[in-house]
Structure formats: C-alpha cells, structure tokens
C-alpha cells in the first residue's frame, strides 16, 4: 500500500521544528510501524537526506523505548500495543498518517521524534526503590504474600516507562507511571517501611519535573501498552495523603 506520512522534523532541542510530508510506497501490511519508518529512512539516506530519528530497541513490546503519537493517539489506536508492535495492516492504502513525538514540557525533543525521558528516571530515583540490605535471595515462601496482592503488584510492575500516559494525558500528567511504581512496591512486604515516604518523594519529584496534575480522565490507561489500571492512582493518592493522616 501507499501512504502519506506527516512527520515532525526537528533538528535539535534548540531549533524549532515543523511537520514534513513524505510518501512511502509499496508498504507491506505485515511490516511493523517502525519497519515502515525504516523503509522511509533507507530511501532518505540513499537520497542523501537526514533520516527521521525515532526511539526503538527491543521491537517486541517490552523495553519501553519506542513511542510515537500516531494520528493523535499515543502508540496508535490498537489497544495495549507499543508502537513497535503496531502493524501496517491496521492502516489502509492511501491513508495520511500523522506522526509526532510525545508532547510534554518535561520530555524535551532531542531530535525529530526522540524525546528525553530522564524525568522518569529522576522520579524513580526519588523513591522508586526499597532500601534494604539485599543479601542473597530469600526463599520464595519466607514472607507470605496474598495472591491478589502479588497479582496486582505484578500488574503494576509491568509498566515499561514508555511515557505514553504523559503523551495522552490532556494535563501532561505522569500520575499513571508514578502510581504504577508506588503500587508495585506498596503492595509487597518489602515496600512497607518506606511506603509513605516513597509516595511523598515521588509525587514531589513528579511535580518538580513539571508534569501536570491528574484529573481522572482515564486517557492514560486507555493508551497504556501494559494496561496499567487507573486504580493505581487511587493508591498513590492514598499513600500520599496517609502520611498526613
């Protein structure tokens, strides 16, 4: 199929960018979205043009590197799917596809479609860990964990930190990302001693980075490739407020 792409091109963080139109021909429906961009880039390189920069690594939906806003939707319209797992069979011949980077002040564009997500690292550094002497791994049954808690903690731990929640949120909030880590650690016995301190420190860092506040629109969880539930944000709020109770 033949497609028209409107892609955000920006040379670096200092320069301003603009949407540029490209035509890509003979795209196979079996290609992933990123493979389609590879095809475009091969041609751009042969023509002596600057290829479109975009983030990617594992290309199997588990690393959290890729992330494009496709036709106004983070990771495209397929639910629970990363950009690399989005296939061209979702599109039709002649489609015009808009491709933009995540848009948020704390995620400055480095080049074209690549944004700097270090803000997420700093939120984790603020408290997304447990400060226990690690030692050797304990026996799996040494500390009993309820099955429901283990499942919910694992669901929250599947967050890959791609940033789609921020990109989709009308407020540019990082609440789902922050809440996923707070829920993951807060549900397990190892996370209990620092539970209140962690929530406070991580929320504070999230605010300092310049992310917006949550208004419970649910846009984040709808685009999340791992389907992190909105309930994690309720838990984050409870942990944050609990400290003051």
């Amino acid at each position: 199929m033949n497609l028209t792409l409107k892609i955000w091109r920006q040379h670096d963080a200092a320069k301003s960018g603009q949407m540029v139109t490209y035509h890509v021909e003979e795209v196979s429906p079996d290609m992933s979205f990123l493979e389609m961009l590879d095809v475009l880039n091969e041609r751009l390189i042969l023509d002596g043009d600057d290829p479109v920069a975009f983030d990617h690594d594992c290309r199997e939906g588990i690393c959290g590197m890729c992330g494009l806003v496709i036709n106004g939707v983070a990771h495209g319209e397929s639910r629970a799917t990363t950009t690399c797992q989005l296939h061209m069979r979702q599109f039709s011949d002649g489609d015009v596809i808009t491709v933009e980077p995540w848009r948020a002040a704390p995620f400055p564009v480095i080049k074209d479609l690549v944004v700097d997500r270090s803000a997420f690292d700093r939120i984790i550094q603020a408290g997304g860990f447990i400060s226990v002497p690690a030692g050797s791994a304990p026996d799996a049954h040494a500390v009993p964990v309820k099955k429901e808690d283990a499942d919910a903690a694992f669901d929250a731990a599947t967050c890959i930190g791609c940033g789609a929640c921020v990109a989709a949120c009308p407020n540019g909030s990082a609440s789902l990302f922050t809440a996923a880590k707070i829920t993951h650690l807060g549900l397990l016995p190892q996370g209990q001693p620092e539970r209140a301190v962690r929530a406070k420190a991580m929320v504070e860092q999230m605010d300092l980075e310049g992310f917006g506040g949550c208004t419970n629109t649910g846009e984040c969880t709808a685009v999340c490739p791992k389907g992190i539930p909105l309930d994690t944000i309720a838990r984050m709020n409870a942990d944050f407020l609990g400290r003051r109770g």
């Binding site: 106004g72 948020a104 407020n171 540019g172 992310f211 649910g218």
Partner: peptide
C-alpha cells in the same frame, strides 16, 4: 496542565476514554 504541554499536537488528540471530562 498548560505549563506541562507548551507545544500542542498538530493532529488533534483523539480521546481514547470517552473523555468529555476536561
């Protein structure tokens, strides 16, 4: 929220959550 997204999306963001909320 306004400070968190100084550059808007070129393609109008389509709500994925029925979002009339804002």
């Amino acid at each position: 929220a306004a400070r968190a997204r100084p550059v808007r999306y070129a393609r109008r963001r389509r709500s994925q959550a029925g979002g009339y909320v804002v």
